[in-house]
C-alpha cells in the first residue's frame, strides 16, 4: 500500500475529492470474485480438498480405462477374495466373486459422483427458479410458493424417494431426479432470502426504471448476485446427495446390479468384512475422503465469499 503524500502547505483538504480519493485507495479495483478466489487459495484445508476432489474425479472417470480389469469382469482363476498383487493386475485385490476391487471402487465412485452432480443440478434449477420468483415477484406468489416449501419440509421425503424407487423401478435417471426433487427446498429458501435483500437495492431499481422486464431483471441482475451463496450451497449439497444415494444403494433400494455405487460396495464389503476388511474399507475410505473434501471446500468457499462471517 502506498501511503498518501501530503504537502506541508496542504491546509484544509476541503475539496470533496479528498474523501473519494481516500476511499478509492482502499478498493484497488479488485473484483469480488478475484478477492474470493484469493481468500480460497489462502485457506489450506479448502485448497487441499479441491486438489483431492479433482484427483478423485480423475481417478473415477479416467483411471478405469487403464486398469487391466473392468468393474464387472470376473477373474475366473480367483473366485474368492485374493490379496492385492501387482502380478495379477488386482492392485487392491478382488472381492469374493473374483472382481477387481479397485476397478469397482472407482466405477462406484463414478456413479456416486454423477448422481451427486446431476441431482444437485436438478435441485439447483428448481431451487433457484422458485427462490428468485418467490423473492422477486413477492405477494401472493411468494406466499404460495413458500407455503408449499413449508409443507414439503414436514413430509418425510426420504420415504417418498424410497416409495418412488420401489414403485417405478430402481433406475438411474429416476434416482437423481427424485433426490434432486427433495434437495431443492433449502436452496429455494436461501435464494429467496437473498433475492429479498437484493430487490430493494438501487441497481435493481435502476434496471426497472430503464424498463427491464421481470424475467430479464431476474436473469441479468438477481441470479448473478445470488451466485455466491448458491455456489457455497451447491458444494454442500453434492455430498448430501452422495450420502442419500449411497444410503439407498446400501439398503438395496438404489442402484441395481450390475451397476454399482459406493453405497452398494460398502454393503457388499460389510457382508464379508470379517474375512476381507479391505472390501469394506476401500469404498468406505474413498467415499469418506470425498465427503470430507466437499465439506471443507464448502466451508472454505463460505468463508471466502462471505468474509464478514469470519
Amino acid at each position: 500500500m502506498n501511503t498518501p503524500t501530503h504537502t506541508p502547505t496542504n491546509i484544509n483538504l476541503s475539496s470533496p475529492h479528498a474523501a473519494a480519493l481516500n476511499a478509492a485507495e482502499d478498493i484497488q479495483g479488485r473484483s469480488l470474485w478475484q478477492d474470493a478466489w484469493r481468500r480460497l487459495l489462502a485457506n489450506r484445508a479448502a485448497l487441499i480438498s479441491l486438489i483431492i476432489l479433482v484427483l478423485v474425479s480423475l481417478a473415477c472417470f479416467v483411471l478405469p480405462h487403464f486398469l487391466p480389469w473392468t468393474y464387472e469382469q470376473i477373474d475366473w482363476e480367483r473366485m474368492e477374495a485374493t490379496p492385492p498383487s501387482l502380478e495379477t493386475g488386482h492392485y487392491l485385490g478382488t472381492d469374493t466373486l473374483g472382481r477387481d476391487l479397485l476397478a469397482r471402487a472407482l466405477f462406484g465412485g463414478r456413479i456416486s459422483l454423477t448422481v451427486g452432480l446431476l441431482a444437485t443440478s436438478v435441485a439447483l434449477l428448481i431451487g433457484v427458479t422458485v427462490g428468485t420468483i418467490a423473492g422477486f415477484v413477492g405477494g401472493r406468489m411468494d406466499q404460495l410458493l413458500m407455503r408449499f416449501v413449508d409443507f414439503m419440509y414436514t413430509v418425510p421425503l426420504t420415504f417418498f424417494v424410497i416409495i418412488l424407487m420401489v414403485l417405478f423401478g430402481r433406475n438411474f435417471i429416476l434416482m437423481f431426479l427424485a433426490i434432486g426433487c427433495i434437495e431443492w427446498l433449502t436452496m429455494a429458501r436461501i435464494v429467496r432470502g437473498q433475492t429479498l435483500t437484493l430487490k430493494n437495492k438501487e441497481f435493481i431499481e435502476a434496471a426497472r426504471a430503464v424498463g427491464g422486464s421481470t424475467s430479464n431483471i431476474i436473469a441479468r441482475h438477481i441470479v448473478p448476485n445470488v451466485l455466491g451463496v448458491v455456489i457455497v450451497y451447491v458444494t454442500l449439497t453434492i455430498p448430501q446427495v452422495i450420502l442419500i444415494e449411497s444410503f439407498l444403494s446400501f439398503l438395496g433400494l438404489g442402484i441395481q446390479e450390475p451397476m454399482t455405487s459406493w453405497g452398494m460396495l460398502i454393503n457388499e464389503g460389510a457382508a464379508e468384512m470379517e474375512s476381507t476388511p479391505r472390501a469394506l474399507l476401500v469404498p468406505a475410505g474413498l467415499m469418506t475422503v470425498t465427503l470430507f473434501c466437499f465439506n471443507f471446500l464448502g466451508d472454505g468457499l463460505r468463508d471466502a465469499l462471505d468474509p464478514k462471517d469470519r
Binding site: 444410503f247 469394506l280 469418506t288 465427503l291 470430507f292 465439506n295
Partner: peptide, 22 residues
Amino acid sequence: AMTGIVVPSFVMAPILILIFAI
C-alpha cells in the same frame, strides 16, 4: 463433528462392528 457428519451410519456401523465385535 465433521467426522460424525461425513462418515455415514452405514460406514460407521460396520466399522464399529469390525472393531468391537471382531
